[in-house]
Design a protein around this nucleic acid. Structure first.
Length: 378
RNA sequence: GGGGGUGCGCCGGAGUUGGAGAGCCGGGCCAGACUGUAAAUCUGGUGUCUCUGACUGAAUAGGUUCGAGUCCUAUCACCCCCA
């Protein structure tokens, strides 16, 4: 595994690079579709390649561990074999579920005891067994076990939690070092910066994470409800500290505008459920702006969903038809909408990368932002 | 042709022993939310108006009553049984 930093934008901190992973190269900046349970919801792997041009997708330790369970994943030969995705995969550690399933878990120094959302059974995640589980899943990039703090979060709690996440990181690193990949290739471990919205904590956390000298550095605990200005401010603080020759991964971000702004701050990798979840809920991101496809105004509009989309389905099918499918609850509606949003996101970061290489990123960004972050009206 | 029954919201259902309905539940429809996915989910609205308040409203037209969606008469529509 290695990272080539090809170019840094002179008028911002935006970077273009290539990340070499066991299952292939990833051109950064990149957006990674979220495939929690071994599937990017409503999108087939073949379409992820041919229509979306996804280079790397996510999986989730918590969900895969509970179902189908590690016995099945190992028997399949790892997640790549199980879901027939031969490009890179990154698995989240379950740290986000410590936040999102907070009502049914208890955090201690040793680890997190939680109740399954599927059958109520009791389980425990520790930094050590989360490493073991991610070995069994076999992703190219595995995440350290952390606590994603909620927003708002008082400073005392944020500080205590951050220090615990740092101690957990060292346990993850130790376990990662004393084990190896089960399927014949290396897996790289990514540590996660925390610190809520407190600048001095973020600075402290970024310095700690940088000192561990891991090949990728991640930023967590953002986009959990804080104002966008806070998210940008925290991102800016840590990208100033993190080493330039390693990719920076901003976890869980975000809207198309968030992504462009954070690329400008020096972020290389993103993931977010917004394009897929919003697609299923009828909100489309298009090259002409945001569309609420359920709205009655599209009932008689037979224009293409997005004439500039890389996805053939978005050029061939009309807004009226997609509205009909969505309102009828047809599975095909979720599929076409997910293809639209994901191909838009991937196209957006490809364009950003090209403009970084061409030296035109900042002007391009300020031109496209007002279009893509506002409603489209025909 | 004879007998019995039922009619209120865009649709279906519940309920109303003559006593406060713009009013219960579900669906539909119209909007909104969603950021390392407990989410094909959730929230709100859905008679009219000059909208912090009024007005109209229980098939239609009358009647009884302090008071009628509820009782009576006629008409209309639909359903069931007999011929």
């Amino acid at each position: 595994m290695s990272f080539d930093l090809l170019h840094t934008d002179p008028s911002s901190s935006a970077r273009a690079g290539i990340l070499h992973l066991p299952h292939g190269d990833v051109e950064t900046p990149i957006f990674m579709p979220v495939g929690t349970a071994g599937t990017v919801k409503a999108v087939h792997q073949q379409e992820l390649k041919d229509q979306v041009h996804a280079q790397i997708i996510l999986g989730n330790t918590y969900h895969l561990y509970l179902r189908p369970g590690m016995e099945v994943i190992q028997q399949a030969g790892g997640l790549h074999k199980f879901n027939h995705w031969d490009r890179p995969i990154l698995t989240d550690s379950g740290g986000y579920q410590v936040y999102s399933l907070s009502k049914q878990r208890k955090i201690k120094e040793e680890g997190v005891k939680f109740r399954s959302h599927i059958d109520g059974s009791i389980h425990t995640f520790t930094p050590e067994n989360v490493m073991d589980i991610q070995r069994q899943i076999g992703a190219d990039i595995i995440m350290a076990f952390d606590e994603c703090t909620p927003y708002p979060c008082d400073e005392k709690y944020a500080s205590r939690s951050m220090h615990m996440t740092h101690r957990w990181l060292d346990r993850c690193i130790a376990r990662h070092r004393e084990t190896e990949g089960l399927y014949g290739y290396d897996q790289i471990l990514a540590p996660i910066i925390q610190g809520s919205t407190y600048p001095h904590l973020r600075k402290q956390s970024a310095e700690y994470i940088a000192s561990r000298d891991m090949p990728i550095n991640a930023i967590g605990g953002l986009s959990v409800g804080e104002p966008h200005e806070d998210m940008y401010a925290m991102t800016s603080i840590v990208t100033d500290i993190l080493p330039k020759n390693k990719p920076r991964y901003l976890m869980g971000v975000g809207t198309p505008a968030n992504i462009l702004e954070c690329i400008a701050l020096g972020i290389d990798m993103f993931d977010c459920v917004l394009p897929t979840r919003n697609a299923r809920h009828g909100l489309l991101y298009t090259s002409r702006g945001i569309i609420h496809i359920r709205n009655e105004k599209w009932k008689h509009c037979f224009d293409a969903i997005d004439p500039a989309s890389p996805a053939a389905t978005s050029r061939e099918h009309s807004l009226s038809y997609l509205r009909h499918l969505t309102i009828s609850g047809e599975a095909l509606g979720a599929m076409i909408a997910s293809l639209q949003n994901l191909s838009f996101y991937l196209s957006l970061v490809r364009q950003a990368r090209q403009h970084i290489l061409d030296g035109t990123f900042t002007t391009w960004k300020s031109g496209i932002l007002p279009i893509i972050s506002n409603p489209f009206s025909n």
